[in-house]
Design a protein around this nucleic acid. Structure first.
Length: 216
DNA sequence: ACATTAAGTGATT
DNA sequence: AATCACTTAATGT
């Protein structure tokens, strides 16, 4: 009964990579199950990272802030079965967070206190591999994001955005305003509206107030 | 009916 | 593609 068995079960289904039984037990003992509502911020710029999240359910938006202009840029979404690679480095170096994470739908995580994150790196090969692989995955995705910003136009970025948002939420109906997209992609709202209008004419999306249906 | 907010549009840079 | 200066449409009170 109770939390411990719960977390152990969740780990088996959502994080099969964490295959070490003893490690799973340790996670069950020190990890805590946390819930966040849509729009809730898990971690803000400048906060100290005190936990590393294993995402069990839902999805999380990870963004970077420009210190000078206080503008935001969406980096990527995190989904169930994933973890926040940025948290690892931040917490191990005891640095303030350079990112903001926000639940975009009801989300459940297993929070792991940082002291264990560090400790397990040497204790469990499985954990080290898990951390390294997550890091590598997100680094690759980040490179793609940079490529898109540097070498592709807004239309590619928009398609990628809609694609990953609908994958993250598991729905092609996206409750997002043009302004929110503009903020995430760091472009003007008018540019978003005009591009979406074009895409609608091409049959790629269907537009309505506060909602975009992605027909990809 | 009125106010507020989201979205569409043309002109300018 | 950004910004401005609107207009139009949807929605809440």
């Amino acid at each position: 009964m109770g939390t411990i068995n719960n977390i152990a079960q969740i780990l088996q289904t959502q994080f099969p990579q964490i295959s070490d039984r003893q490690l799973r037990e340790e996670i069950s003992e020190v990890g805590q199950l946390l819930h966040f509502g849509a729009g809730e911020t898990l971690l803000d710029y400048g906060n100290y990272v005190k936990m590393v999240p294993l995402i069990v359910k839902g999805s999380i938006k990870v963004s970077r802030e420009d210190e000078i202009e206080s503008k935001e840029l969406l980096l990527y979404f995190l989904n169930a079965g994933e973890t926040c690679s940025m948290s690892f480095t931040c917490c191990m170096m005891d640095k303030k967070s350079a990112i903001r994470t926000e639940a975009i739908e009801p989300t459940t995580i297993i929070g792991i206190p940082i002291k264990y994150v560090d400790l397990w790196m040497t204790k469990y090969t499985v954990w080290k591999n898990f951390v390294m692989r997550s890091y590598d995955n997100k680094m690759l995705e980040l490179v793609k994001v940079i490529d898109n910003i540097a070498f592709r136009g807004l239309d590619t970025r928009m398609k990628n955005f809609l694609q990953s948002l609908s994958e993250s939420t598991g729905s092609n109906i996206l409750s997002y305003t043009h302004q929110q997209i503009a903020d995430d992609l760091n472009v003007s709202r008018e540019a978003v509206s005009r591009l979406l209008k074009k895409m609608e004419n091409l049959g790629l999306v269907k537009l309505s107030r506060n909602q975009i249906t992605f027909l990809g």
